[in-house]
Nucleic acid binder design. Structure first.
Lengths: 198, 198
DNA sequence: GTCTATAACAGGATAGAC
DNA sequence: GTCTATCCTGTTATAGAC
């Protein structure tokens, strides 16, 4: 963090403190310290703590979607266990490499489930992500949009749920779970193909 | 809530307030009001707020495991889309019928990911649940323990992840997602059977 | 735009009476 | 066991100087 706009520094600091301490314990004081600005400045840019965090979550969603953009399969290659495992590598590695990022999401999940304003933010976040994953899936599998949307929601659930188990417990057999997931997706995909051919 | 032991009343009230307000906003004052006892009494039974909530989470895990105990398939009936859908009905309905219960879990997920003491509680909770689901799966599918454990972790991830999407957004196509999940599991199970027969 | 200082309040935990 | 009263700390948001 160099000396970018102080507003940006505040958002970046909020991201860090929020993922480490959680919504309530993430005090504006600590955010200001981390950002290297006066506490009062936060309220100059953001009328309230809530609005600051809304901005943090907005950026998180953007980043999340971008992380899926590498998901493209070379044309002609069929989908099998190996290629599916390769595709899953990207979301899988995120929980290991950026656990703070991961924690941040669960923070929003928890808040969103109990606070009406945050629920709206959460709803949008989930919708944006689902749609993004869905469009990747369409280009990979050639499935129709509706089916892809549903598929995306299941996939998203698994990714977040397995990451949770891994971040909460380093001894969790994350690889095994992803291995089984790949097999499951492979079996399902094969079945879809067969049905389409009939 | 009649006039059971005041200690029990405190725990029950903590459950309610915690799932509604979240960890930090769930004040001992409000818990005391809800339970109809003096605030000081909470500290008589529980040296700290953390220990009170640890007890709440312990009970949640117990309840969760019990909720899976109805999951038994009539012997001889094969696993197909219909019977799998039937089995999934139980976890599926929980998010709709008891959203507070659901929120409570996400509360622990968020706290557990950032607090060392709570992480231990979370780890145990996840482990207990996985093992419980796994043993149900073993008796239903006849899969070996290790495979069932892995299966349980994937299944648990999906259940919580889909529930999140539904509770966060009532317009979410929850039925479609569970429908696809049943198909996925069916396809995977068929594949397992075939492999076993070779 | 940025800072310092402070107002206004709420939290958990404790002391001590009954 | 249970209550009331209080202490101490930490919080957000604002006021006002620079």
């Amino acid at each position: 963090m160099t000396d970018a706009d102080k507003r940006d520094r505040i958002i970046a600091a909020a991201y860090d403190v929020l993922s480490e301490k959680g919504y309530d314990k993430a005090s504006t004081k600590e955010i200001a310290n981390t950002a290297g600005v006066a506490q009062g400045l936060i309220n100059y840019y953001f009328p309230s703590k809530d609005l600051l965090f809304a901005e943090v979550f907005r950026r998180e969603t953007e980043k999340y979607c971008k992380s899926f953009d590498g998901l493209i399969v070379v044309d002609g290659k069929p989908l099998n266990i190996e290629s599916i495992s390769g595709l899953l590598e990207i979301p899988k590695s995120k929980a290991l490499e950026e656990p703070e990022w991961f924690r941040l999401r669960y923070e929003l999940f928890a808040i969103g489930l109990r606070n009406d304003a945050a629920r709206e933010t959460l709803k949008e976040m989930l919708d944006t992500k689902r749609k993004h994953i869905s469009s990747s899936l369409q280009s990979i599998t050639g499935l129709p949009p509706e089916q892809s949307d549903t598929f995306a929601s299941v996939l998203y659930a698994i990714i977040e749920g397995l990451g949770l188990q891994k971040v909460a417990d380093p001894t969790f057999r994350y690889d095994d779970a992803y291995g089984m997931l790949a097999e499951m997706l492979g079996a399902y995909y094969e079945q879809l193909i067969k049905k389409r051919e009939l």
